[in-house]
Design a protein around this nucleic acid. Structure first.
Length: 210
DNA sequence: ATATCGATTATCT
DNA sequence: GATAATCGATATG
């Protein structure tokens, strides 16, 4: 069905990993419930020559995961309010990561809604139809998707995402996006000119249109 | 539809 | 002490 993405997938330049992650699935097993979302928006952060990257100034207590093995969760806390999920790239010793910015909900809509503090429409629990507008607010943003998947720095920073036993992992189910667009990254001031944000063209689940 | 602003805290200067 | 890889609410066109 779906192939788990292994360390070799992530042991590459983050720009390549970022593009290749579009269309893949983020999965989370919570007890008997499985959450799934298709990745539609990502950003690459480089290990050097990237003023916006947390790894830019060398290893610190916060960013040490970025210098470790590939395929690990780098979760940081931002604006005193939100968590953001990255996947470490490059072989151990070399930094770099991909920020996961938006997902299209695929499974576990009712659980995601609850984790986001939203009231699920009746269709969500019964497996019936749910409005696109409602689905859109579940995981269309890096802080939102962490809340929906209940990902926190305290529990999940450093977690190995290349094995299903971690309860959080990434997989390829064969889906391939038709068209990918590169744009400037969102919410940064330094290195704002680099086009290292990648989106699935036409997706209705981006944090911002195009 | 776009703009602006407040919340709230870890991290770094 | 300032800043930040965001979000949700409110205001205005």
């Amino acid at each position: 069905m779906a192939r788990t993405l292994l360390a070799a997938f992530f042991a590459r330049d983050p720009r390549r990993v970022a593009r290749d992650l579009l269309g893949k699935l983020l999965l989370r097993q919570r007890g008997k419930k499985r959450l799934a979302g298709r990745i539609v928006e990502v950003e690459a952060y480089l290990g050097s020559d990237d003023a916006a990257a947390h790894a830019g100034a060398g290893p610190t207590a916060r960013n040490r995961v970025l210098f470790g093995p590939p395929g690990r969760a780098y979760v940081y806390f931002i604006y005193g309010n939100h968590y953001c999920l990255n996947v470490s790239c490059q072989p151990a010793g070399k930094a770099g990561c991909v920020l996961i910015r938006a997902l299209e909900p695929v499974a576990g809509v009712a659980e995601m809604a609850r984790a986001r503090g939203l009231r699920a429409p009746s269709g969500a629990t019964s497996g019936g139809p749910v409005s696109q507008r409602f689905l859109r607010q579940l995981t269309s943003g890096p802080g939102r998707l962490c809340a929906a998947f209940d990902i926190t720095r305290e529990r999940d920073n450093g977690r190995n995402l290349t094995t299903r036993t971690s309860q959080i992992w990434l997989a390829d189910d064969g889906y391939r996006p038709q068209r990918i667009l590169a744009t400037p990254r969102i919410g940064i001031r330094k290195a704002a000119g680099k086009r290292l944000r990648f989106v699935v063209v036409g997706s209705l689940f981006l944090s911002r249109a195009k």
